[in-house]
Nucleic acid binder design. Sequence first.
DNA 1: CGACGATTTGAAATCAGTCAAGAGCAGTGG
DNA 2: CCACTGCTCTTGACTGATTTCAAATCGTCG
Lengths: 244, 244
Amino acid sequence: MLQPAEHPLAALLQRLGRRGTLTAADQQAVLDLPQKLAKFRANDFIVREDDTPKHSCVLVSGFAYRHKIAGNGGRQIFSIHLRGDAIDIHNAVLHRADHNVQALTDVELAMIPVGAVRDIAASNPNVGLALWYETLIDSAIFREWTLNVGRRDARARTAHLLCEFALRLKALGTNGTNEYELPMTQDQLGDALALTSVHVNRTLMTLENEGLIERSRRSVKITDYARLAMLGDFDPAYLHLDTD
Amino acid sequence: MLQPAEHPLAALLQRLGRRGTLTAADQQAVLDLPQKLAKFRANDFIVREDDTPKHSCVLVSGFAYRHKIAGNGGRQIFSIHLRGDAIDIHNAVLHRADHNVQALTDVELAMIPVGAVRDIAASNPNVGLALWYETLIDSAIFREWTLNVGRRDARARTAHLLCEFALRLKALGTNGTNEYELPMTQDQLGDALALTSVHVNRTLMTLENEGLIERSRRSVKITDYARLAMLGDFDPAYLHLDTD
DNA sequence: CGACGATTTGAAATCAGTCAAGAGCAGTGG
DNA sequence: CCACTGCTCTTGACTGATTTCAAATCGTCG
């Protein structure tokens, strides 16, 4: 087997395999998926609404986000994606994209032909289930974001997002601390939280003045995780990180 | 083959087969799924957050909804479900429920053991893909609701929900008109739209005064669909009704 | 009729939005 | 090295959509 650490699909494999249901053959089948590496610059569109994507993408490095634009011009961001996220497997099944995927930072993507995704799901039930599982976790995150935007006030919403990001970064295993780069402008944060950038700014300052976080530039340090999680009504069960 | 119209899973089969990818054998396999019929009264919980469901449910008759409750007591409804909807196939894969499913009206459910769902997905790739597809449409609806709640004002939000409901009912084939029973209290509508029931009330009255809808009791008649859809920024692409 | 839940209406309060201007910070180029 | 440019962040004053609180009306069902 190839060295997972060097393979473009290594992060995906780690993700798919975390429930422990993949055999060595399954794992090899994932690594053998046809793929080519592509690079996008920050702010490039990876998928546009109404596209018929030919590839499903796995994020190899960098950050990306999914969003949709309302008729009144408002943009809603649905999710932020990290290394290892299969950001549009759904397009292998749905055919027509109903929302946009955009690069938040410069990114590297492993592009897998949609037919290959469908084929591996059909021929390899373990992998198929694991892929399905990933899209269901996406779903769970969407639901939590809907709850966040619909039923929490600005402070709680913001705190919730900061906690989610911290935990997902930790789950990647690269960063054990509660300090991280949040590669988003306050405008983008606003579109994720359904707030204006002005109010995001005021809210971040409040959190900082309350001693919950420290900031400098885009770097965030959660100085009181327990209180921030409490304030943000953050219960990570929806992330399904514990391979249930 | 059994008469689909009389089989509890007939509506599910119709749903799964709409893309035309199921062979006769696939269809029979779906109808052969082990299931038992269960009835719930309006407001009964079908699945509770943190449950480990033993069954996945298909809605045979009535209406159900999915929701989650925030720490501050606010409830956010994520989706309303109609006959034929597989309201918690996701629980066959995820194991632990991260949100509630509740009966909106009296309902009949076909309860399929979660193991049987996983088995048919593994042994029958066409059916597996069709099930996956259904959960992806759920996802698409969640995203649109997030956009609705996050980026549209009260009038547009409400109009959007009314249009979605009309179209999904039409897709069921039972009702070709734009008049239907909306089996929700204004309180429940508020939880779906992230508004208070008071504001839902005012907004419905506005829509009525503007000549877009007529109401009596819970019955809604869309008198000007074109304008309502325009106002609600409603583009049904996200429902993926056209078997793309 | 009486009771209960749901809907409707009114008035006051508030959270977040809008508009607008200034400050900070990188990168660019002279 | 510094001025310039562009973008993001910060701040203030004002506005407004929606919430809150509270009371009245309606409809249905026993």
